[in-house]
C-alpha cells in the first residue's frame, strides 16, 4: 500500500495573550491509500486541530510552526491560494462535527450542491448539477425528491448523510470525518457508518476518522492513534489497542466504557483532569494521572518509539504484551524541545 498522506513532526501553536500554546506537538503519522485511520483522545487533545491543519483550514491565532504535511508527495504547506482551492474538496474533503451547523439554513440542498459544482467548474448548467446531486443523494439513501427541501426539513441523521454526500461530491481521495456521529443516537450512527464503509469500499478513498468513542473506532478503523494533550502517545492496529494497550492512557480509556455483556464491575476511569496546555510541566504529560508514573516520568519526556512491527508508543514504562521482543528504536528525529538532550542521553 502506498502512502497517501504523510505528516511529519507537525506542531500547531495558538497565539494567546499569555504566549504561545502548543496544541499539537511533534505529531507524525501517515495514512495509506484506502485505509481508515482513527484519532482518539479527550476534548482539547488536538485531534480536530490536526484535521483542520491537513486541509489548511486553520485560521489565526492557530499557526503551523513546524513540521510538514505531504499529500501524494506534494507539500500542502507550500501551496498558494489557487492550488489550495483546487486541493480542498477535490482531493480532501471534510465532514464536520455537527451537520446542523454546516448547512446553510436559508438555501435548499439543491442550491448547496450547485454551489460546490459551480465553484469547482464541474458542470455547465444547473440541470446537470441537479442530475449529479440526485445521483449523490441516491448513494446515501435519501429520496431524490427531497433535493429541493431546506435543511430544517430533514432529521439529524438525514442531514448528516446529506453532508456526507456533499463531501463525496468531487470524489476526494481523503475524507476527514470529525466526530461525524456524536450528536446522533446509536441506531442512526451505525446506519451511517455502515454506509460510509460501503462507500469507501466502492470508491476506494481513505478516511481520517476522529472521535472520542474508542469502541466505535475499533469496529470501523484499520489503525488507531491515541492522542493526549497534543501528543500522539500510541499508534496501533485497531484490534490491539483495547486488548493489548501499551500506553497506560490507552489502557485507562479502554477501562472507561461500561460493557453490555459479561460481569458488571466497578470501573475507575482515569482520575484527574486533562492537562492545562498553558503550563506544561516537564516530563511525560500524562504522568500526573498515570498509575505507573515514576520519578523519571516526571523529568524526561518520552518520544514515540517503535515497539514492534506495527506499533508505536511514547511511554517510558509501557505495559507489557506477550510478543514484545524487539528493542525500541526511534521513529522520528525530535525537534527543538527543551527535553531533547535529556531524552537523547537516556536513549
Amino acid at each position: 500500500m502506498s502512502k497517501l498522506v504523510e505528516v511529519k513532526n507537525l506542531c500547531v501553536d495558538y497565539i494567546t495573550f499569555n504566549g504561545r500554546v502548543r496544541a499539537v506537538s511533534d505529531v507524525s503519522f501517515h495514512i495509506n491509500q484506502g485505509e481508515i485511520l482513527g484519532l482518539a483522545g479527550e476534548s482539547g487533545c488536538g485531534k480536530s486541530t490536526i484535521a483542520y491543519s491537513l486541509m489548511r483550514l486553520h485560521r489565526p491565532p492557530a499557526l503551523i510552526s513546524e513540521g510538514s504535511i505531504e499529500f501524494e508527495g506534494r507539500d500542502v504547506l507550500a501551496m498558494d491560494d489557487d492550488q489550495l482551492r483546487e486541493f480542498r474538496w477535490k482531493e480532501t474533503s471534510m465532514v464536520f462535527q455537527s451537520a446542523m451547523n454546516c448547512l446553510n439554513p436559508v438555501k435548499t440542498i439543491e442550491y448547496q450542491f450547485w454551489d460546490i459544482f459551480d465553484a469547482h467548474g464541474l458542470v455547465s448548467s444547473r440541470d446537470e448539477s441537479i442530475e449529479k446531486a440526485k445521483e449523490l443523494l441516491r448513494i446515501v439513501d435519501i429520496p431524490t425528491e427531497r433535493l429541493f427541501d431546506y435543511p430544517h426539513q430533514f432529521s439529524g441523521g438525514m442531514r448528516q448523510r446529506v453532508v456526507i454526500a456533499m463531501a463525496l461530491a468531487l470524489k476526494p481521495k481523503l475524507l476527514i470525518m470529525d466526530e461525524p456521529t456524536t450528536a446522533l443516537d446509536v441506531v442512526v450512527q451505525r446506519e451511517i457508518l455502515q454506509k460510509v464503509y460501503q462507500l469507501k469500499e466502492q470508491f476506494g478513498f481513505s478516511i481520517l476518522f476522529i472521535t472520542h468513542d474508542l469502541s466505535l473506532m475499533v469496529e470501523l478503523c484499520d489503525r488507531i492513534g491515541i492522542m493526549y494533550s497534543g501528543k500522539l502517545v500510541e499508534l496501533a492496529p485497531a484490534k490491539q489497542i483495547l486488548s493489548q494497550p501499551l500506553h497506560p492512557y490507552a489502557h485507562g480509556l479502554g477501562d472507561s466504557f461500561p460493557t453490555l455483556h459479561g460481569e458488571l464491575q466497578e470501573m475507575k476511569g482515569i482520575p484527574g483532569t486533562p492537562l492545562d496546555l498553558q503550563n506544561v510541566p516537564p516530563g511525560c504529560r500524562f504522568a500526573p494521572r498515570c498509575f505507573k508514573a515514576t520519578a523519571a516520568c516526571r523529568e524526561q519526556e518520552p518520544q514515540l518509539l517503535q515497539a514492534n512491527e506495527q506499533r508505536w508508543v511514547a511511554c517510558l514504562e509501557p505495559l507489557k504484551i506477550a510478543s514484545q521482543a524487539q528493542q525500541p528504536e526511534p521513529l522520528t528525529q525530535s525537534h527543538s524541545e527543551p527535553s531533547e538532550t535529556t531524552c537523547a542521553e537516556a536513549l
Binding site: R190, S215, L260, H261
Partner: peptide, 25 residues
Amino acid sequence: QLLLAAVPDPSRSIHEKLPTQRSME
C-alpha cells in the same frame, strides 16, 4: 434488540446487519 445491536462493541464487526427495516422514519 435493535438498540442493543447498535451499541458500539469492539468485539463486533461494523458489517453486522441491524435487525430492522428502515421503511420510514
